[in-house]
Design a protein around this nucleic acid. Structure first.
Lengths: 108, 108
DNA sequence: GTGATATATAAGCGAATGATTATATGATAT
DNA sequence: ATATCATATAATCATTCGCTTATATATCAC
């Protein structure tokens, strides 16, 4: 069952706390890497590597603007991922829970 | 975000090919361990260990009858798991693909 | 009882995972 | 050109994962 194997692979992307949080944030709007670092309280390389995984499987897309790289969701054609993200807390809830409501849109 | 962490943990259960196949089969009816061994072509201990994980997180429940242990889904209260399993191939499709349509209901 | 079948558990192992630190690349500002 | 900020990559490491083999437990048939 190749179909199941592929679903399992994609679901593996969602089964990490940091990545699932990133994807849930991206439901609302695009974020640049430095914002995610500030919100998630993990190192910049860790965030970067998670985003690379997500991008390599086509779940997010990137958009470079100036020195920043903005990431956004790319799940229009991935129903099982959408189905999960529909049930995930929204960005407001996440930011409040982490006391990170007040981000400077530009990092430093 | 404890809620996200818990979802990620549960999704980890679905992100393995063998477990996702087991859960997809269980959408149709309960299966005993020896049937799953026959279908999945992995060792009996491997199946048993997957089922233990699924049971320990409340995703399946077991029912011992005679020398057999039957497992069935227990996802009524787990919307994100249901959402994924709704999009998974059904047992007929899986069994056909694996050429395992003709199981003896009792194993040996 | 003995033997056969069904299932579970334990131990061990190689591979994958997610993190960190250090370094490289690239854009911006002065 | 130099310094600073944003991001990516590489190397390393501890942990987790899924499998196998070996063994234990439990039920059934005789």
């Amino acid at each position: 069952m190749e179909q199941i194997r592929e679903m399992a692979d994609k679901l593996k992307l969602l089964s990490d706390n940091t990545r699932l949080t990133i994807l849930s944030l991206l439901k609302d709007r695009e974020f640049c890497v430095c914002e995610l670092v500030e919100i998630l309280e993990v190192s910049q390389p860790a965030v970067s590597q998670h985003l690379r995984k997500l991008k390599s499987q086509g779940v997010v897309k990137e958009s470079k603007r100036g020195q920043w790289v903005y990431y956004s969701l790319n799940v229009a054609d991935k129903p099982y991922i959408k189905a999960v993200l529909d049930l995930t807390p929204d960005s407001q809830t996440i930011l409040s829970a982490l006391n990170k409501q007040h981000l400077t849109s530009v990092c430093k």
